[in-house]
């Protein structure tokens, strides 16, 4: 049974696209058939993060409006054959997304894939509501700071009221993914602590992704961090998050990049 997962946050720049790509690649690594859809029509980025920007011919809007077939628009990842991307259009805007069209595309994808990951745009307007509309599971990406937490809270409210599942009286499964977490800064009180965020949002936590230059490095080479460097701290954190997403109980730790003696000495000098 295919699952539609929406990666959403309300606020921009918290790591939705990075997380969509990383979770998608990690799920595909476990052998499942995964497609990641970019809903950020007009400001697409997922193709860059997944290194497929030179291979986009047709996009989500073409499929939604019936100008192209789904198979023509799907881009299969070169590194993993069970990972696909459905890119957004860069030239159109979010009003081109129709509810019936999106529902039709998702139903078609449900037959081909095990996981359909919808990378939501920021905001609470059409793009975001369309991305969450047909979801079964939601991953709410939050940074440990007040504005991100409040926006996430707003999104959780929308997930509970504006999704198809909620309107039918069901309850959408919601998970919190805390990204860009810096344990040292949280310790100094410059960031919200994990417990504070959990108390406000009160949804289960599936992972804490530490702030790391590995994430930026992976984005720049166009590869999800879980593919580019699975052994890095954020890579391991995303793999753990995927295991929890699938229902496994994994002890929650905040992975850190182990620095050798060399790194420690020079790291400190650089700082």
């Amino acid at each position: 049974m295919a699952k539609v997962l929406v990666v959403t946050s309300g606020k921009g720049g918290v790591g939705k696209t990075t997380s969509s790509a990383a979770l998608g690649a990690a799920l595909a690594h476990g052998g499942e058939k995964v497609v990641v859809i970019d809903f950020d029509v007009g400001l697409r980025n997922l193709d860059l993060v997944m290194g497929a920007e030179r291979r986009v011919v047709f996009d989500l809007i073409n499929v939604v409006q019936g100008d192209a077939k789904l198979n023509q628009a799907l881009i299969r990842d070169k590194r993993m054959e069970n990972l696909s991307l459905l890119p957004a259009s860069q030239t159109r805007d979010k009003d081109a997304l129709t509810e019936e069209g999106v529902a039709r595309v998702l139903n078609e994808l449900r037959e081909k894939f095990d996981w359909i990951i919808c990378d939501s745009p920021a905001g609470i307007e059409r793009g975001a509501t369309m991305a969450m509309r047909h979801a079964d599971v939601a991953v709410v990406v939050t940074n440990p700071e007040v504005s991100s937490v409040r926006d996430s809270d707003r999104i959780i409210g929308l997930l509970d009221s504006k999704t198809e599942l909620a309107e039918k009286g069901g309850r959408i499964e919601k998970h919190l993914l805390l990204t860009r977490y810096d344990p040292a800064r949280a310790e100094r009180g410059e960031m919200l602590k994990v417990d504070d965020v959990l108390e406000i949002l009160s949804i289960p936590l599936i992972g804490i992704i530490p702030e790391s230059e590995e994430v930026l490095r992976a984005s720049n080479v166009g590869s999800p961090v879980t593919l580019n460097n699975p052994a890095s701290a954020p890579g391991r954190a995303y793999f753990d998050a995927v295991r929890r997403l699938k229902g496994e109980t994994v002890e929650l730790t905040i992975p850190t990049d182990k620095k050798g003696l060399f790194g420690k000495l020079f790291g400190r000098r650089a700082a």
């Binding site: 609470i124 409040r150 926006d151 809270d153 707003r154 959780i156 409210g157 929308l158 509970d160 009221s161 009160s202």
Partner: peptide
């Protein structure tokens, strides 16, 4: 029964 979320 649950919580009232931001914006509600």
């Amino acid at each position: 029964e649950g919580s009232v979320r931001s914006g509600q």
